[in-house]
């Protein structure tokens, strides 16, 4: 296999609080290959966004990387600071957030924002950049791109704005795009458009995409591989079809079984008892053990199970549990 675009090795993020240190990301490792969409899924507080923010160096102090390595195209980036990180962020990593308005400068025409970004990171002339800006907007499916480059962000609808953000994220031709809940604020019909767009761009350009979401349906349709996170740790990592149809980790299984499925009508929903532990009260051993139907004493004690070779970080991975 080719070298991965992004490689995260045993990454931990810590936040010191007055009640002690909490670890929103705890020993997470995964790779993303070129042209691949990796889904990061988990419930709120699972640490999925925090992991993405760590990669782009956008952790809010006092949160910091306490352990592990992040490699981008063979270069180690977790210790980069200030200017070096900022250059890298624009050039090699594109970002798409939930709320498109936060990624766009409301006072600049979108054409200018695209041209500025391209001229900062690519060695091209202004005329060339302007031409490419129109092309970029056409590529993300904005009708009348040649005129719309002169519009301001507020003149676009929510779905169109998210397209502009995607164009902006891709215009410097990054090798990695981090999309954090890119469709959560959008309506179903627009969401389908954005997912289709992300997939097409990823395939055509060979960009690696980290797609962070809580929506299993989006994961199923958009991603190639999926990482399931629970309480800051990786619970399961594998190809999306395997993980969703034959989950090996009891948490993934519970998550899938508790989602109402169109094909199953009005059956009673499976429930996982309880809720995800708060980060300042993660239980010893496997974080899922108090809610797990299969937990034994082994699960309640340190050390925690790690993904090593296998798909699920579990002492007793499920076999042949078909969900869908």
């Amino acid at each position: 296999m080719a070298d991965p675009v992004l490689s995260i090795r045993d990454l931990s993020v810590e936040i010191p609080t007055r009640h002690g240190i909490v670890r929103p990301v705890d020993g997470v490792s995964y790779d993303i290959q070129a042209g691949e969409i990796l889904g990061i899924v988990g419930e709120s507080g699972a640490g999925k966004s925090m992991a993405g923010n760590a990669v782009i160096g956008l952790l809010n102090p006092p949160a910091h990387i306490s352990k592990g390595e992040i490699w981008l195209n063979g270069q180690r980036i977790d210790h980069l600071k200030g200017d070096a990180m900022r250059r890298l962020r624009g050039k090699e990593i594109g970002m798409v957030f939930q709320d498109p308005l936060t990624s766009l400068n409301p006072l600049l025409r979108i054409g200018d924002q695209l041209t500025e970004t391209m001229m900062t990171h690519l060695t091209i002339s202004r005329a060339e950049a302007e031409k490419r800006a129109v092309a970029a907007l056409e590529e993300v499916g904005i009708p009348g791109a040649a005129e719309r480059v002169n519009s301001y962000p507020h003149e676009f609808s929510g779905g169109m704005r998210q397209r502009v953000v995607i164009a902006l994220a891709l215009c410097a031709e990054p090798s990695l795009v981090i999309a954090d809940e890119p469709t959560t604020a959008l309506d179903v019909s627009v969401q389908a458009q954005i997912i289709a767009l992300l997939r097409r761009l990823c395939r055509d350009r060979g960009t690696a995409v980290m797609l962070i979401t809580h929506d299993m349906g989006v994961i199923a349709e958009a991603t190639d591989r999926v990482a399931v996170m629970y309480a800051g740790r990786l619970a399961e990592l594998g190809s999306v079809r395997d993980v969703l149809t034959h989950p090996q980790h009891p948490y993934t299984h519970g998550l899938m079984a508790s989602t109402p499925l169109a094909s199953q009508g009005k059956r009673r929903l499976h429930q996982i008892p309880g809720a995800m532990p708060r980060l300042d009260a993660v239980p010893d051993g496997c974080a899922f053990n108090p809610r797990c139907p299969h937990a034994t004493d082994k699960c309640r004690q340190a050390p925690l199970p790690r993904l090593s070779g296998g798909r699920a970080a579990c002492w007793y991975p499920l076999v042949d549990e078909k969900v869908i």
Binding site: S157, G158, G159, M160, D187, V188, S189, V190, Q191, A192, Q193, I195, A196, D215, M216, G217, V218, A220, E221, A222, V240, R241, L244, T245, M256, T259, L261, A262, S263, I324
Partner: peptide, 22 residues
Amino acid sequence: LLEAAPQMDGFGREVQPPEGEI
């Protein structure tokens, strides 16, 4: 609406996304 809604078993589903917005 039904066609556009993401489906849990829709692995790699290629749908013609809906036209236009509300």
